[in-house]
Amino acid sequence: MRGFLALLLACGGLAAAAGEPSADRRISGFATMHPDTQAMQRSDRLNPAMLWVAEGARAWTTPAGPAGQSCASCHGEAVRSMAGAAARYPVVDAATGKPRDLAGQIRACRSERQRAGDWAPESRPLLAMEAFLGLQSRGQPILPALDSRLEASIEAGRALFNARIGQLNLSCAGCHEDNAGRRLGGSLIPQGHPTGYPIYRLEWQGLGSLQRRLRNCMTGVRAEPYPYGSAELIALELYLKRRAAGMVIETPAVRP
C-alpha cells in the first residue's frame, strides 16, 4: 500500500511538471526495437547480459577482503533482500548526505565494509553485480526514493537534461522529448527512459551502465562528458528516474 501511494505521488509530480510526456505516452525503448532484438531480451537463455548476471550471482556469495565476508554474509539471499533496491536508487548516503547511485553503493560496500579491493567504474565485476542486483527488481515499477534531500539534485538533473551542450549545441530534451520517435540518421530516437540498465548494447558488444550511455550521448554532441560517478551524472540519473517513475524495470535489457 505504501509503495502504491509513493507511486501515485511520483506520477502526480510528473504529470504536474510542464513539457514532459504524460504518463500514458511514455514508452520503453524495448517497444520500438526490432522483434529479433526483443526476442533476445525476452529469453534469459539468449540474452548475453545473463552472462554478467551469472557472474554477479557468484560474486554475491564469494567471500572477499580480510574478514572473509561475502555480500550474502550481511544481506542474505539477494532475491529477498535486494528485491526493489535497484528500483529505488539513487538514494541519500547517510554518511555524507549526498545522493549515491547503485554502483556507488556497491563500491562503498566493497571497499568500506568488505575492505576488499575497490571495483573501477564500468569494470566487469561492478557491472556484473549491478546487473545481478537490477535483475532482483525486474518487473517492478521504478519507485524513486521520496527524500527532500534529493530535490536539489533532481532539479540540477532537470537543468542538465534541458541545457544545450557541446559543439552541436543540443540538449537531451531536444532529441529525447522534442524529437523522440523520429529518426537520427538510421536510428529511432527513444524517449530515453532508464528502464533496463545495465544494458547489453549490441553496438558496444558488451554490458554498459546508464552513465556510459549518458557519456556516450555527450561525446556524440561533442561535449566533454562528466566523469563516472560525478554529481552531475547522478543528478541526471535522479531526474531520469523521476521522469520514468512507474515504468517497469527490464534489467538486464538488450538494446541495439
Binding site: S43, D44, R45, L46, N47, P48, M50, L51, A54, E55, R58
Partner: peptide, 8 residues
C-alpha cells in the same frame, strides 16, 4: 566466470 548460456 560463466562460460556460456545454453538452451538445449
Amino acid at each position: 566466470m560463466a562460460n556460456a548460456l545454453l538452451d538445449i
